[in-house]
């Protein structure tokens, strides 16, 4: 077994990094809307809400080789929430791991991009999510195994706030802390929405930060649609890990408060639904609103 070494991050300025990630997030949102339109349905709201997180991970944080998804030195990104696959496919297209042209096969028979993410189907998909509460347990083993082999790769697990209902998430939270998996970062998408309605009414998870802190994790809570805040949090989470010789520190969790449908006002203001219905004529409007918002943001930035 070879021992991969860390590759240095680019020495771009914070403003440059932020601009690059925001541009990537915009393309991820466009990809997600495209896939939603192809299927006429899908978890578009979640993908739009998580686009900034996915962009921060794939355009800034993650070490990977798009042409070699199995490269042993890669950082691992584990998607627990299989239904967010639409968002991850968008990010993998942005990252160059899968061709942008393949996105039109999303959810079709024989496609490498099934509706629920599965490792055996898609390059760059590390695990099969979908049965919730699994990702962090696998991440614990992966981080333990990589450290055991002297591989300094980081492990990220993206999970939803709904998965905090699952007891296995907390088994894994205790295990990661006990084994001092400093190179493990959990990312919780707190969109406060579950299948049966708002999280607050399904099973209250707050105070979320206190729960993770009590389990021995380094906790960062940010606006998950604020790219600057996300990058600061991911840098801090990673530096704690990389600062120790063998990754032997407290794991980190980045709690990301996000807004379902972010970037498309029509969807942001729609009655909140886990599985969002979008009428056929609305897709064009969604794209227009997304592009208009992006243009306005850029003008504001250039002013």
């Amino acid at each position: 077994m070879t021992t991969p070494t860390l590759e240095p991050r680019t020495a771009a300025s914070p403003a440059q990094r932020r601009a690059a990630v925001e541009a990537a997030a915009h393309r991820i949102r466009r990809h997600a809307l495209f896939m939603g339109e192809v299927q006429g349905q899908g978890y578009v709201g979640q993908a739009l809400g998580a686009a900034d997180i996915l962009a921060a991970v794939y355009a800034d944080q993650l070490r990977f080789r798009p042409e070699d998804p199995e490269w042993d030195g890669r950082d691992r990104f584990l998607l627990s929430t299989g239904h967010y696959a639409i968002g991850l496919y968008a990010a993998l297209a942005e990252a160059g791991t899968i061709p942008v042209g393949e996105l039109e096969t999303y959810g079709s028979d024989g496609s490498r991009l099934p509706m629920s993410g599965m490792a055996t189907y898609t390059p760059g998909m590390e695990i099969s999510g979908g049965s919730l509460g699994h990702g962090l347990t696998i991440a614990v083993g992966l981080a333990l195994g990589l450290r055991h082999r002297g591989n300094p790769a980081r492990v990220f697990n993206f999970l939803s706030d709904g998965e905090l209902d699952e007891g296995s998430t907390w088994e894994a939270a205790m295990g990661a802390s006990h084994h001092r998996l400093g190179r493990l970062t959990a990312i919780v998408d707190i969109n406060a929405l579950q299948a049966d309605g708002p999280t607050e009414g399904v099973l209250r998870t707050e105070p979320v930060a206190d729960k993770w802190a009590a389990c021995g994790w380094r906790v960062f809570r940010v606006d998950g649609n604020d790219v600057g805040a996300l990058l600061e949090a991911f840098d801090a989470a990673g530096s704690g890990a990389d600062g120790t010789e063998d990754g032997d520190g407290a794991p980190a969790v980045v709690l990301c408060d996000t807004r379902v449908g972010r970037g498309v006002p029509l969807l942001e203001t729609r009655e909140k639904a886990h599985f969002m219905r979008i009428e056929e004529h609305e897709w064009a409007l969604c794209n227009e609103q997304l592009d208009a918002g992006w243009a306005a943001k850029n003008e504001e930035g250039n002013a």
């Binding site: 691992r76 590390e126 695990i127 699994h134 962090l136 347990t137 696998i138 991440a139 614990v140 083993g141 992966l142 981080a143 333990l144 195994g145 990589l146 055991h148 082999r149 591989n151 296995s168 894994a172 295990g175």
Partner: peptide, 9 residues
């Protein structure tokens, strides 16, 4: 779950 992760490693 962790055993699966270790096998993945």
């Amino acid at each position: 779950g962790a055993a699966a992760g270790m096998a993945e490693a």
